[in-house]
Design a protein around this nucleic acid. Sequence first.
DNA 1: GCCAACGTTGGC
DNA 2: GCCAACGTTGGC
Length: 136
Amino acid sequence: MNYWLVKSEPDKYGWHHFTEQGRAVWDGVRNYQARNNLNAMRLGDQVLYYHSVTNPGVVGLATVVREAYPDPTVPDDPRWVVVELEPVLAFYRAVPLARIKAEPLLANLALLRQSRLSVMPIRPDEFELILKMGQQ
DNA sequence: GCCAACGTTGGC
DNA sequence: GCCAACGTTGGC
């Protein structure tokens, strides 16, 4: 089991929209490092759902329901892939970026170190902590 | 709205 | 291969 974090702008594709649809094709990733992370996702992996820009923070948990395949929105460009995600649970309370920054145990999160990466791996202990922070 | 970080493009 | 210019992301 692997753990990940994906970013989305709530004004473009927010958690609410995601849960209404019940399933998302995670398209539009155009960064090689993020793409490599999509390729490494396996069925059942756990994915933290992060809102960027507007009220930045982790708002929910999703899971991988289909592994990487070519991005259908760019059929002529084989470089890019998508995965499919389904919502698992909404956080009782969102974990704002400010709380993540204030938590020493999360100081090594890629979220803080590589501000522009939109798909990133999370260590199991980091994942458990963020999940716990969202449920209290 | 501003600005820093950073990835990409293109000239040389 | 280097680097300046430029576009995008994302925090504040």
